[in-house]
Measured scan of single mutants.
Amino acid sequence: SSQSQGISSSSTSTMPNSSQSSHSSSGTLSSLETVSTQELYSIPEDQEPEDQEPEEPTPAPWARLWALQDGFANLECVNDNYWFGRDKSCEYCFDEPLLKRTDKYRTYSKKHFRIFREVGPKNSYIAYIEDHSGNGTFVNTELVGKGKRRPLNNNSEIALSLSRNKVFVFFDLTVDDQSVYPKALRDEYIMSKTLGSGACGEVKLAFERKTCKKVAIKIISKRKFAIGSAREADPALNVETEIEILKKLNHPCIIKIKNFFDAEDYYIVLELMEGGELFDKVVGNKRLKEATCKLYFYQMLLAVQYLHENGIIHRDLKPENVLLSSQEEDCLIKITDFGHSKILGETSLMRTLCGTPTYLAPEVLVSVGTAGYNRAVDCWSLGVILFICLSGYPPFSEHRTQVSLKDQITSGKYNFIPEVWAEVSEKALDLVKKLLVVDPKARFTTEEALRHPWLQDEDMKRKFQDLLSEENESTALPQVLAQPSTSRKRPREGEAEGAETTKRPAVCAAVL
């Protein structure tokens, strides 16, 4: 046999249950609850290399294929790409003598399909299967379609040439079993990697079954959420508030809700932002270029202005709740996480202390139980975000031990490091100062900020419009641009040419 590394010779191994799959997660993409704000000051410096380099560890398999027929071997997927077919160049070659004697062998292509993985959001991997055969590759009886790919989820059954000719079961060793999710959700989405997690739940990458488009699904544990919100009269209202707010909003710089499922837990389906959180971008770069800050901040102002015009105060604006559309420097941003939002009543007064301390406005800290506050709290938070983006460190921090965090904020005395700000323009610093004003009545509004000289930049605004146009074009394009080929190089076993392929839609398939 010419099988590559990772293939075992026996096809009769006992199949494990899916609970053996491991679970991976990374930083929070968007969480309903406010958790302790991640610290920006503690960015690790590059460490000196050791005298002796450690040995390379043996790579762990990321997936496993269990053979369902004699003549096929099990495969431990270690590499990122595997070709399957009769050709000797394939990493998994159909060359077992037992297999060659079967009637089905002649229906398999020289290069029938490939399984591979690509880097997705949060640097996690996504597994795909890609059909290159004349007679078809099927996943859970659905045709992939020649020249098309679809994501592979845990426990997928792979069939060759005929939908009933099941050859492998695919085990993704990095994700959960699909069966743990409600059927209504599974009918519409293929669940994938964990993108982030918080005290009350997690955010998962998923794929729409009909279109193969990526989405983010925010899962909120009702049990954990009820415990964490025990002081509230009705904890469920917080989730329902977020859903109702998101459904009503329609702005290019605000995250869109696509679906909602109320089962044992809450499942909020949101558009996916491939670039992750602004927080991670700031930490990764230490600070952002001023031109990049301007492009992002302009969009934040437009989003918050839209919220305020619609009578909504976000109340928890922070870099973790600003998501980026891509890994590119120039990209769209979207505001997310409306769990603490407040729809303005007639009095415009709110007395609930919520939000993240580092970003809270002075009037929030001094008015607990005594007075109210209004939309100006969001403008203060925007000032803190702009400060961080321009400088790479927070204006107020618990680690300045000589003054408490509350006193720093209520006095408006931010930590100004001259040598850092020497590289920032006077106009940018002036806008920061106009937003970090203790008196909410004297603080800049979103309208005033948008009129500030720093943002009178036609090149930046043109760039934003171009990015918007690109997004609109990409969302308007159909996901499947061509029909699967019906040509046949070899006959199917026991049926006429093209008899099955043309009847089945290529579900969740995307043209390369």
Rank of each mutant, 00 (worst) to 15 (best):
E244A: 15
E244Y: 13
E244I: 15
I245F: 06
L246M: 14
K247C: 15
K248R: 13
K248G: 04
P252N: 14
P252L: 09
C253I: 13
I255D: 02
I257K: 04
F260I: 11
D262N: 11
A263G: 13
Y266I: 11
I268K: 04
L270C: 04
E271V: 11
L272T: 11
M273T: 10
E274I: 09
G275L: 03
G275I: 01
E277V: 01
E277K: 03
L278W: 02
D280H: 04
K281Y: 13
R287A: 14
E290V: 09
E290W: 08
A291R: 10
A291N: 13
A291Y: 02
T292C: 01
T292R: 13
L295W: 12
F297H: 09
M300R: 03
M300T: 04
L301Q: 06
L302V: 08
A303P: 03
V304K: 09
Y306F: 10
N310L: 08
D316N: 01
K318H: 00
P319N: 03
L323W: 00
L323D: 01
L324H: 06
L324Q: 05
L324C: 10
Q327K: 05
Q327R: 14
E329Q: 12
L332H: 04
F338A: 00
K342E: 04
I343Y: 15
E346V: 14
M350C: 05
G355R: 03
G355L: 01
T356A: 07
E363L: 01
V364M: 13
L365M: 06
V366W: 15
S367A: 13
A371G: 08
G372L: 11
R375D: 13
A376T: 11
G383N: 01
I385T: 04
L386T: 00
F387I: 02
I388T: 13
Y393C: 05
E398V: 03
T401V: 09
L405V: 09
Q408E: 09
F416L: 00
P418L: 05
E426W: 12
D430E: 07
D430A: 07
D430V: 15
K434C: 07
L436M: 06
V438E: 05
D439G: 02
R443C: 02
E448F: 07
W454L: 04
E458W: 12
E458A: 07
S469G: 12
N472F: 13
N472K: 04
A476E: 00
V480P: 14
L481H: 01
L481P: 14
A482L: 15
A482S: 05
A482H: 02
P484I: 00
K489A: 05
R490V: 09
P491M: 14
G494T: 04
A496H: 00
T501E: 08
R504L: 11
A506P: 14
C508A: 04
L512A: 09
L512S: 13
